[in-house]
Amino acid sequence: MSLSLTRLNQYRSMWVLVFFDLPTETTTERKVASGFRKRLITDGFAMFQFSIYMRFCPSRENAAVHIKRTKNALPKKGKVCIMQITDKQFGMMELFHGKKAVEPESPSQQLELF
């Protein structure tokens, strides 16, 4: 792959991040929160931090599909934020475990069926 195509892909491919703060005081609220997390995982999201899930998407159009699915699964209570950033922006993130810097995850290889 040529350098120009690699750069283009870094700006075209997206990461979708879902941040949420859902109530968990009652049994029903815990079930709703757990169901929301399970739907994210079923749709290919992985936990980045507690209450932050992320998913790599090869294009903006693909990201839009997963954002729509997430919006359709929104709980009635709580706060949810959906953010999308380019792969290039994601690659500039600095991650630390304690004071030790770690490399960000690389996109998983996913088979896309149309």
Rank of each mutant, 00 (worst) to 15 (best):
L40N: 02
A64W: 05
L111C: 10
K38M: 07
F90H: 14
V32Q: 02
R69C: 03
R37M: 01
S2R: 00
F20P: 03
N9W: 07
F90K: 08
E103R: 12
V16A: 01
K38I: 05
T24F: 06
Q49H: 12
V18Y: 06
R7C: 10
L95E: 13
F50I: 14
E112F: 14
D21A: 05
K38Y: 07
T24W: 05
T28F: 05
T28Y: 07
T70I: 00
F48I: 11
L113T: 02
L8S: 13
Q109A: 13
P58C: 04
D21P: 06
G78C: 03
M54R: 15
Y11P: 04
K71T: 05
M92D: 14
F48Y: 15
V65D: 13
Y11R: 15
E29K: 08
K68V: 05
K76D: 08
N62D: 15
P75I: 01
T42P: 02
G78T: 00
A64Y: 06
I41G: 08
P104L: 06
P75W: 02
L17R: 05
E112I: 15
L74S: 00
I82H: 01
V80F: 01
P23S: 07
F20E: 06
S4E: 15
E94Y: 08
K71W: 09
K71L: 15
T26C: 03
K77P: 03
M47E: 07
M93W: 11
K71M: 12
T24A: 09
I41R: 09
G98A: 00
L95R: 12
S34W: 07
A46E: 15
K76M: 04
F96C: 05
E103L: 12
M83R: 12
I41M: 11
I82G: 00
L95T: 08
G78R: 02
E25H: 13
S106T: 14
N9M: 10
M54T: 09
R12S: 09
N72K: 06
L3I: 06
V32F: 06
Q110K: 15
Y53L: 08
E25W: 11
M92I: 09
V18L: 06
G98L: 00
F90L: 07
N72V: 08
R69V: 01
V16I: 04
N62Q: 14
H66K: 08
I82T: 00
C81R: 12
W15S: 04
I52L: 08
V65T: 12
R55V: 00
D21Q: 09
R69D: 02
L3K: 10
K71V: 06
S13P: 03
Y53T: 10
K88W: 14
L113S: 03
H66A: 08
G91C: 09
S59K: 03
Q110L: 11
M83S: 10
G44K: 01
D21V: 04
A33P: 03
I85E: 06
M14K: 13
K68T: 09
L17W: 04
P23R: 00
D43S: 06
L5G: 04
